[in-house]
């Protein structure tokens, strides 16, 4: 009976399908039409001091994925237990602080923009550390 070729309510259904495809392919056309920004991940630039130190409080791999966890532990330990010295597995001591003093995170990784923000921005992570803690370089 029906020719099995014709689509009924054609206009609205085709419009819906086009919308569907547009949504699905959004990242692709968004990239080609609008942003076109390079897709490679940012390289972390180590400061001279960090290069010289050769190692962080923990291994590079550990820090890459677990640094937020580490900081979380640090902040609790510092505030709640008044323990401020971190003795790393290889025996070195560090000041458990994000931004205060030479022996803190930013004491070594002096360039926050290069060291923190680049990757955070890339991965759309916006930690609220800097709402309170002060980057010594930005100090007013």
């Amino acid at each position: 009976m029906s020719k099995n070729k014709k689509m009924y309510n054609r206009n609205i259904i085709v419009a819906g399908l086009i919308l569907f495809i547009a949504l699905i392919t959004f990242p692709v056309w968004n990239y080609y039409v609008f942003s076109g920004e390079t897709s490679t991940a940012p390289e972390i630039k180590l400061s001279e001091k960090a290069k010289a130190a050769k190692e962080c409080v923990r291994s590079k791999e550990y820090m890459k994925t677990e640094h937020m966890q580490l900081l979380d532990v640090w902040r609790d330990t510092v505030v709640r237990e008044a323990k401020r010295v971190y003795v790393s597995p290889n025996g070195k001591s560090y000041n458990m602080s994000l931004s205060s003093g030479d022996n803190s995170c930013l004491g070594c990784h002096v360039d926050k923009a290069e060291f923190c923000d680049k990757c955070h921005n890339y991965a759309s992570v916006s930690p609220y550390c800097w709402d309170c803690h002060i980057d010594p370089k930005e100090k007013k």
């Binding site: 409080v57 923990r58 291994s59 791999e61 550990y62 890459k64 994925t65 677990e66 330990t77 237990e81 008044a82 323990k83 401020r84 010295v85 971190y86 003795v87 790393s88 597995p89 458990m96």
Partner: peptide
């Protein structure tokens, strides 16, 4: 994957605390 490091670090008070 990721890091399988055992947590062996220690946290203490400052000596001068």
């Amino acid at each position: 994957g990721g890091s399988g490091e055992e947590a062996t670090a220690e946290m203490t008070k400052n000596e001068s605390a």
